[in-house]
Design a protein around this nucleic acid. Sequence first.
DNA 1: GTTAATTATTTGACTTTGTCAACTAACTAG
DNA 2: CTAGTTAGTTGACAAAGTCAAATAATTAAC
Lengths: 316, 316
Amino acid sequence: MPSVNLHLPDDHAPAPHAATDALRRFNRFYTRFAGVLGPGYMGSELSLIEARILYEIATGQPVVSKRIVETLSIDPGYLSRILRRFTQLGWIARTRGADAREHPIRLTTAGEALFSELDRTTAASTSATLAHLSPGEQAGLAERLAWIEARLAGAPLPPPAVRPWRPGDMGLITAQQAVYYRGAYGWGDAMEVLIGEITSRFVRDFHAGREQCWVAERHGELLGSVFLVAESDKVARLRLLYVDAAARGHGLGRDLVGRCIAFAREAGYAELVLWTHTVLASARAIYADYGFTIEKVETHDEFGKPEQSEHWRLAL
Amino acid sequence: MPSVNLHLPDDHAPAPHAATDALRRFNRFYTRFAGVLGPGYMGSELSLIEARILYEIATGQPVVSKRIVETLSIDPGYLSRILRRFTQLGWIARTRGADAREHPIRLTTAGEALFSELDRTTAASTSATLAHLSPGEQAGLAERLAWIEARLAGAPLPPPAVRPWRPGDMGLITAQQAVYYRGAYGWGDAMEVLIGEITSRFVRDFHAGREQCWVAERHGELLGSVFLVAESDKVARLRLLYVDAAARGHGLGRDLVGRCIAFAREAGYAELVLWTHTVLASARAIYADYGFTIEKVETHDEFGKPEQSEHWRLAL
DNA sequence: GTTAATTATTTGACTTTGTCAACTAACTAG
DNA sequence: CTAGTTAGTTGACAAAGTCAAATAATTAAC
């Protein structure tokens, strides 16, 4: 379920603190929503911290105190006492580790039972709060939560996944590129129409094995795309290479062009041609690196203002 | 910055608990991220609860204990003591309300100063955690947070806003409808191509004042659209009426068709025609309600399987 | 208009939660 | 073998939070 992040130039630019304010607001909302302020944890007898400790033990068995202290940033003395209580209650058992200073923790059978009960009830309670959302909204929620977590945790983003096109991709590609070229280069409706016609025609005339479109996405967000279409029996054309601002500088464009070249060779084409514009410097650099050469340069006025365009060619 | 929520039929359907799991996972992440487990609040001297209480007072002045107890779900006795301390510290002053049982709370000058200081430091600290995000990511974050909050709070959704089309809309409309009709009715690539061609042609030949496309969106999400195009001097055609599942049953389709009719009358057309399919029951009901009548019925095979289509007409 | 019930807030008497520094036992580097 | 670390525990507190009873003002019922 891909989506595109469109930032229209005519959008009223958000205030510089908009994101900060949004996060602080969300913070207030979420502390209340999650019931952090109140006692108990989702109706269980355990406090939030006890539940979290139990979770760390259950999911990390065997786990040593130190790790819990670190992941939960909790006082070691405090944890020690909680663990002693858990032991007395028969929920956990502590063994002797290879390093005798450590006392790895495991759940006892009773502990396992308690945890799975806790797991069930919290799942049920969470599920209940989600009950009034439609399946589509639930999916949208899950996607957004994952995105936010990844962004806030500052986790390194996974590389975008490249896959062949699917139904629905064409429209998103059209929207993404139309908005981008308009904002970045002032190319108008004609460009949007051109892209729309190319993508529609691609689906209409799609010849599997001889043509392909690759799409790069990450967390359901469209990050780039490229088309390889048959120009004639021996000539293939690379079209609409695009990499989103969020993914530039990591070789995605190079990857996409590489796939086109490999596919074209595989399919038995003798040459690969493309049409691009002089202003699109990073794309041109990729083409040059792969050995494409400029065949012809011409200036046209199709996009609402004069642009110098170039015809490139690569013998396969 | 509109987006579409696409659920392709061939997507590996998410497990039924996916959203629940995602939320629980996020819960664990966020309690750690927000530092709920640790002491202090964003580096200030105040505890999380004290900060929240101060916030409630500052933003709700004058506010009574009871309201704070309710919004923060905190023990009244506990709050009473905290407020006494705040009073002793000179941060708040308590007055006599119309109801003499209540003691409305206001910030003193010192309290105002403290709060604005707290506000500044938490803003700065939040801002710092956001510093490694690009402006686009920050905007995406804010949007997602707002969406999640609205969804989790179970707040009634605002009605979708209807506006004329903008650059980029066409591709999104194409993607949305292509995916929907494929999933719901099994209509294949031909349908996607048809929609893509209609939307591209619309932009190419757009005749302002004689033609229009309206788009309904909410929280940046595309929820519906409709086109009115010139068929001839006296005949207008309504095309591609669509309302997303998330917005059905609230009269949006009716609204969109109503706009088309009003616009067509305004523009001086003598009649309004449209082509639809018998399976699209809710759209047909809207057309019938507005007085459209069926002129001709025919079966075609364009979308990959036989479908009965209908030509409707309304005299303006 | 008196009485009973209710409401907003406070207080006393607690328990629980969390902190800090000192301490023990086991390990590691030189 | 010694000095320095590390994992975990303990004692002595302080802070946070709870619960029931009390107080004072208001409302509802007769």
